[in-house]
């Protein structure tokens, strides 16, 4: 079953003189339980695709379907956000600075109409490898890796099965990156999650994903499996140059 279907997607920002086509005619599918990567340099439109799916970029055309259901151009409903959640790049900016970890998670659980919040919060923290003592801390009392764990716990709170990951480890040290990537690998198996992951770091995508799309200037230049990329079977010039720059 396909979880995410993107067909002929165009996304643009601004109008008139400032009109920018951020994504041009992008199409791909992500199967259930699959991990799909989007790579490209900054400004290539990879994050914009995630923003269009979650409704953060309202100007789009084409079709986006989640579990076979086409999304409308209006506001996403509760049901959508229960299924689809996003983890952002900068853990320093994506958590409310004046809410404790407990507040962040309880609010999410409450919004999803989940009962037994107290137990669920501790179970969520446990699931992302955070000790109970972090529950009543504020974001500034946590390290970058710990914050990203909280953001992942928040994404999992509503029992979402599709997680959009927007450069989840770019702001972290390599040693912390390894911990977060391992956590994401384990969670995917445990909860049978579908990942759509954006990164400029090809080795990270290679580690996490089964298939990937290479983007350049708003267009998908190539969609291929990680194995064939690894075997140097990339067709497009740009994918090859990216591969060359990533292997040391």
């Amino acid at each position: 079953m396909t979880m995410i279907t993107i067909n002929g997607l165009n996304v643009w920002y601004g109008d008139g003189r400032d009109h920018v086509d951020a994504v041009k005619n992008a199409s791909f599918e992500v199967a259930a339980g699959e991990s799909f990567g989007l790579v490209g340099e900054s400004g290539s439109g990879k994050s914009t695709i995630l923003r269009a799916i979650t409704g953060l970029a309202p100007n789009w055309s084409g079709t986006i379907s989640i579990e076979g259901k086409q999304l409308s151009h209006g506001k996403r409903d509760r049901e959508f956000y229960r299924r689809v959640q996003m983890v952002f790049q900068d853990p320093y900016a994506s958590l409310h600075p004046r809410h404790t970890v407990d507040q962040v998670l309880s609010e999410t659980l409450d919004l999803n109409g989940i009962t037994g919040i107290d137990q669920r919060v501790s179970r969520l923290l446990d699931g992302v490898g955070l000790d109970g003592k972090f529950r009543f801390r504020y974001p500034h009392q946590l390290s970058g890796g710990q914050r990203q764990r909280v953001a992942i716990a928040r994404a999992l709170a509503g029992e979402a099965n599709i997680i959009l990951l927007d450069e989840p480890t770019s702001a972290l040290d390599v040693s912390v990156q390894a911990e977060i990537l391992n956590l994401l690998t384990d969670l995917r198996e445990e909860h049978n999650l579908t990942y759509l992951m954006v990164s400029h770091d090809l080795p990270v995508i290679g580690h996490m994903c089964d298939r990937l799309a290479v983007m350049k200037d708003g267009e998908i230049v190539e969609t291929l499996t990680v194995d064939s990329l690894r075997a140097m079977r990339a067709q497009h010039e740009y994918s090859r140059s990216l591969l060359k720059a990533s292997i040391v």
């Binding site: 390599v174 040693s175 990156q177 390894a178 391992n182 690998t185 591969l243």
Partner: peptide, 20 residues
């Protein structure tokens, strides 16, 4: 060594990365 091993390597896939 720990830092070097915690990096994902494109040419050497593995399930889990080494944690420092």
């Amino acid at each position: 060594q720990g830092l070097l091993n915690s990096l994902p390597r494109f040419d050497q896939p593995r399930r889990h990365l080494d944690v420092l």
